[in-house]
Each structure stands twice: as structure tokens, then as C-alpha cells.
Design a protein around this nucleic acid. Structure first.
Lengths: 170, 170, 170, 170
DNA sequence: AGCTAACCGAGACGGTACGTCCCGTCTTGCA
DNA sequence: TGCAAGACGGGACGTACCGTCTCGGTTAGCT
């Protein structure tokens, strides 16, 4: 509702770190208590506000494991680098989930949702005995690792490299 | 010095999130100012306190890429799961580096040190045109991903799976 | 009605200061709105709940000013020290009337009622030119002063002392 | 210090009921914590801010009980009606001491200080066996009663009436 | 040996955000 | 249709830490 909108607006204006509960409340024209009634912390609000963004990543199958994976990763990269600052927000949520124990499970379930999508993409092609979990961890792991450490950008060529290695390695 | 000891002690007693500068100062029998004279935040103190732990991961080369990588990853996993809570602290530092912009570069350089070690392990065997950066990102990425999200533990069998996929995929 | 009962029950269980409108409503099995429809604040509810208690103080005239006054004051003291906590509640209402401007006139009219009773007791005996208002203020004043400050209890001997001074002084 | 000044300023600008801890802190250019470090509530701050005002009431003895008492009461009335709003603030403090149990003893000791002054005035003349406590209660009682209920103002003629009754009654 | 200067513990300080509490009003859904 | 139930906007509260700033006592070095 208005609270989620206010949260997104605040994220773009001042960034997650400077986003306060008071600010969201004021922007949304809402009492602080109303926020605490429905969520446990600003992290939960932001996670909710973000959920719909994530749905945007969809790929239709081609015939090949490598190209499917490359397409999926590319599409995700694009979202994260996009103008909505989704990447920056996800970084902050990952951080919050480390520091606020009670937020962690809710964030983990969001992550699990993404894993399931990628897993189903791989399962379309992979042999049954392959270690798909490890592959998913490597793909998303590389993504998160670059996102968090920022030693290098999430460029399309990386998506292709990752896809190639996994496709050959499985 | 005594400050680093107090920091480590505090980490094990209350965890990173509940560790405050005041607490470290009191535990170390030191004025807060003395801490700020040498470090910029508790994250820097903890990073310093941690640096020596990381040096423990060393592997001597065998003849094979796959087994070298598996050994390196296994050894790292062991450290992270160890009784000193190194894994937990690293998670918290990664989190802090997202929320405190000025800490990020110092943490990134710590990360880069680890990358360099793994990279040199791979370079002993890989062909020159292989995408080693992507491989390193996948290996460390998978590690961090599991460490942060905790959807599955860092078991030795994962180390072997990761090594196999990378060795075949490169 | 049930609301007044719930208010009295609440007063004895948690005291005036911790009595909230929500609590009265919940205890009475009533919507908060229903309370606000008939009263302006919890102070008004409590004042209503209290009114009947006050009627209990009645004295029949003897022949003497001093003994009539002593009897009236004694009787009032007895009520205030009684097991219903009337004294405690009155203190709280006096407090509320200081902090909530719109409640003050309603409380003042309650007070005026008591003044009228005492005044008529004195007028039975006093000479017309005596300053009865001052006497009433002194008598009730001493009562309220001890009630509010609690530097000493409202014992019967005080009632006699007050009556003696006023009777001789007028 | 600056906090007490800010409190007094705030009292005159918005009155006790609308005076908030945040406001005092902001006006004084001070962190809220600093206030809570030295006082327990805004009531304590205000009580402190007020203490010096009270010292202003001093009377030198004449030869007569009645005139001494009348002078003391008159002088006190003048202070309470004065332009600093001392009377209004005292009302609010009396109210607070009813609603905040832990403030009550501190306020009571302030009250006791005033009692001691009046008592010593009376003791200069009164016979040893007279009930001076009752007299003090009546005098200050009448004062507080009118101050709190506001059924009539604290005019000098009242001071004279009270003094006469007490002087004749003792 | 005495005097001075640097250092450092202790912790008060200005400041910001937090999460809770209660108020008095507004909305919903059952009877 | 009326009322219980309770969500809501609002705003003060008291607490927790942050990073900076005094304040004294101690110590080390210089005279």
C-alpha cells in the first residue's frame, strides 16, 4: 500500500542506510505504530516492497542448458543493475539479515524462491545424478559475491562465462 | 594489543551485532578515544583481530587442479566452521561493509587477498585463455552464499562438488 | 452502567495512573467509541463513578459549631481513608484537573458541591459578618493538602484540631 | 544551567502540559540523554528550575502573630500570582506528584521546606501546647486549595482573613 | 629531584533512531 | 442499525549507541 510506496521512494532518495522508520511513516502519512503492526522492522517493509520487482525475471526455454542459464543470469544482472537500485537494496537486505537474527529466516525464504526458479531452469536439461545444488550455489554465489564485494561489475559476459563453466562442468 | 583481545572476547560472548565500542573499551580497560585513534569503527577493529586467523589456510600443490581446489576449499570451510566463530564474524563484516560505505574498501582489500591465493592455485594448472576470474567468483561465491544465507552447511562434499564442476568446466 | 463498574475495578487493580481508556473498554466489554460518546476522558468516567460515594457523608446538627464541624470533617476523613480508595482516586482527579484544562470545570463543580455542604453546616451557627469562605477554604484546604502531600494522615484528632481553631477563630 | 533556563522558557511559552523532554533538550542545545542523566523526568527538571524562585519569600518579624502570618501569606500569594507563572507551574507539579509515584517524595520535600518556614514564623509567638501543625495545614491548605481549584483568587484580603482566624483560633 | 608535558582512563556530551505506549478518531463486520 | 472490536494518525516517551569532547591523574623526559 502507501507504506511500501513510501519505502521505495525513500530508498531511492536517501538509500537504505539512511532510511528510517520515522521517515517511511511520515512520507506515507501514517503512524509509526501502523508499520510495526504489520512488519517487524524496516527490513521487512523493504523486502515486501521488493518482492514484486523480483518477479520480473522470466525466461522461456531454448533448447540448451548453457543458453538458458546464460539468459537467466543475464536477465537477473540487468534487473540488479537497473535504475530502481534493486541491487543496492538487496545488498542492504543481505546485510540486515546478518545483523538482525529474526529477519534472517524471512530473507532466506525470499532467497529460496529465487533458487527454486534457477533450479527448475537447470533441471530441464541436467542428468539426474548431477549436483544441481552445487551448481545453483555457484551461479547465485558468483552473483552475490560480485554484488556484495563490488570487485567487478555484473556484466553480460560474466553471465556467459558462468553458464559455460556450469554447462560443461555438470 | 589488549583491544583486539577484548574485541574477540566480546564477539564470542555477545556476537558482533551486540558488540559496542563502549563494551570493547570497558573490557580492554581503555578509553574509547584510544580505539578511535587507531581504527575508524568496530568493524575495523574486528577486521584486524581477524586477519591472523585467515593466514591459517595453506595448501601444498598436488598434481591436479581438481584436488588442489578441493583441498583449498575444504581447508577454508574447516576454518569457517571452526570453534572460533570465524565464519560468524566474517558474515558480520560483510554486512557492515554494505552498510558503512567507508569500511567497504578495507574489507574489499581483505577479500582480494583471499582471491589472490585461490587464483594462484588455479593458475598452476589452467590454460591461459580460461576464464579464471569467473571460476574464482563461482568458488568463493558459493562459499559466501552458503555462509550468508545458511540454506546449507559448508560440508567437505560441497568442496568436492565445486572443484569437480570448475575443473571440468574450465 | 457496566462502564463505571469496570472503571472502579480498574482503579483498584492498577490505580488511576495506569488506567487506560482501552482497559476500561475491554473490561466492560464495550467499544472505546461508546465511552467517548458519553464522556470526554477517563477522568470524567471516574468522576461519575465516584459521585455516589461522596453522598455518604451526612451529619445531623448538634448544638455547637465546633462539634458539628468536627463531626463533618471526621466523617469525610473516614470516607477518604476507607477501603474503596476514594482518597486515592480524588487525588488523581485533582491532578487530572490541573493537566487537562477542559476537565477542570467539571471537577470544580464537584468540589463546589462539597463546599456548599460544609458552608451550610457553618452557617447554622456563625455570625453573619464572619468570613465563612475563608473558613471553608481552611478546612477543606487542610484536608486536600494532607491528602495530596501525604506528609501526615487524616486522623480524627486533626478533625478536632481544625474544628477548634475555626470555631474560636471566627 | 542551560537546561533549567530552557525549561523555564518552555514553561512560559507553552505551559507545563505541552512541555516535552525533547523540547527542553532542543531549546537547550542538549542531547535528551543528558537530561535523563541528571533528572528522572521533566517534573524534576522543573522542580529544580523553580527552587530558587521560592527563596524570594522572606518576611521580617513584626511584634504580632497575626500580622506576621498575614505578611507571609500575602508575600507568597504575590509570588504565585506573579508574572513568572510560578503558581501555574506549582499546580502542574502537584499534579505530577500524584500521577508519578517516584516524583512524589521529591516534591514532598520541597513542600516540607515551605512548611518549615511558615512553622518558624508561627512558633515565634504561639504557646507551646498549641496545635501548630494543624494551623500550618490550614494556612497552606487554603492556599493550595484555591490555587488548584481556582474557585477564587489568592487576594491579599484572604491572607488577612486566614491570619485572623488562625491568630484567634490558636 | 623537581617540573613539565604528553598521554590516556573515564565518561559526559550533542545527536539520531529506535520501538513502545496511549490518545481520540475512523472503519469494519457481526447480530 | 447499532455497537464490539480494533486499526489508524499522531506524538511523547525513555533507551541505546554513535563519535567527539573534556577532565584529571599518571608517567616519562628534561632540566
Amino acid at each position: 500500500v502507501a507504506i511500501l510506496d513510501a519505502a521505495l521512494r525513500g530508498l531511492q532518495e536517501v538509500g537504505y542506510a539512511n532510511l528510517t522508520t520515522d521517515r517511511i511513516a511520515r512520507d506515507a502519512g501514517v503512524g509509526k505504530q501502523t508499520i510495526y503492526r504489520w512488519w517487524n522492522s524496516k527490513a521487512d517493509v523493504v523486502l515486501d516492497a521488493l518482492r514484486e520487482h523480483a518477479r520480473a525475471v522470466e525466461t522461456r526455454p531454448t533448447g540448451e542448458l548453457e543458453s538458458d542459464v546464460a539468459a537467466f543470469m543475464s536477465s537477473t544482472f540487468r534487473l540488479l543493475r537497473g535504475p530502481t537500485g534493486t541491487g543496492q537494496v538487496l545488498k542492504a537486505l543481505m546485510a540486515e539479515s546478518q545483523l538482525q537474527a529474526e529477519f534472517a529466516p524471512r530473507f532466506a525464504s525470499f532467497i529460496q524462491g529465487r533458487r527454486d526458479v534457477l533450479r527448475s531452469v537447470i533441471e530441464r536439461h541436467a542428468s539426474a545424478h548431477a549436483d544441481i545444488d552445487a551448481a545453483v550455489d555457484m551461479l547465485f554465489g558468483a552473483l552475490w559475491y560480485r554484488l556484495l564485494v563490488e570487485h567487478a561489475p555484473l556484466v553480460p559476459s560474466l553471465a556467459r562465462s558462468l553458464a559455460r563453466i556450469v554447462a560443461h562442468g555438470l
